[in-house]
Simulated scan of single mutants.
Amino acid sequence: MNAPDELKKAIEGDLKSIEQICIATWEPLYRFIYFKVQNREEAEDITQETYVKTLAYLQKHKMPWDNLPGFMKTVALNVLRDRWRQRKRRGIPVNFEEINPEETAGMDHQKAVSQRLQIENALAKLSEDQRIVLDLRINKGYSVAESAKLAGKTEAAVRTAQYRALQALAQILDDSD
């Protein structure tokens, strides 16, 4: 496959060339997306949408072949972010017809209180820095960039602190079982 020629033909709408590009790039792109979403159907949808958006973009702009895989990953991340934003705006769908009021009212609230206290105690064992990062990222939903700005840290420091905090929290909770 002569990559630049295939890309040029694909941009012009040649279905065989589009197929060749998909064959050459599908597996690494799909793996990249699947790693992010951990859901086969969603990864397939995002992969397909990535190809559509990439081709539409390439029909309007020129780009060398050697940048295509990285560009497609960027497009995939943008598609993924758009989906996450849409979900965040929509919230969690609730089917009120499937809710059984007696069952819901009879839930073990003592267990819920116990779990909450266990989590609060585990959080108290983390460093203040770790608690701040978890609060900004998880409780308040800020992005890494926003959290870094609010905490006065670099984005890498926020990512590292979040990772270490979640690891420590998991360890504390495992030890308490």
Rank of each mutant, 00 (worst) to 15 (best):
M1N: 13
D5C: 04
E6S: 10
K8E: 10
I11N: 01
D14L: 02
L15S: 14
K16D: 13
S17H: 06
Q20S: 14
C22V: 01
C22Y: 01
C22T: 03
T25Y: 09
T25K: 00
T25M: 09
E27L: 00
E27M: 00
P28K: 06
F32Y: 14
Y34E: 12
F35L: 12
K36D: 07
Q38V: 12
R40E: 15
E41M: 06
E44Y: 00
E44L: 00
E49R: 09
Y51E: 08
V52A: 15
L58F: 00
K60V: 03
H61R: 11
M63N: 06
M63H: 08
W65A: 05
L68Y: 03
A76L: 00
A76Q: 00
V79R: 05
R90T: 11
G91A: 08
V94H: 05
E97Y: 14
I99A: 02
E102N: 13
T104E: 14
T104I: 10
A105R: 15
H109P: 00
K111L: 15
S114N: 12
S114R: 15
Q115R: 12
S127K: 15
I132M: 13
V133F: 04
R137T: 07
K140A: 06
Y142D: 07
Y142N: 10
V144L: 05
A148H: 01
A151D: 02
G152T: 08
K153L: 14
T154K: 10
V158H: 01
R159D: 09
R159C: 06
A161D: 09
R164S: 03
R164Y: 13
R164P: 00
L166Y: 10
A168N: 14
I172C: 03
D174A: 14
D174G: 04
D174W: 06
D175L: 09
D175P: 00
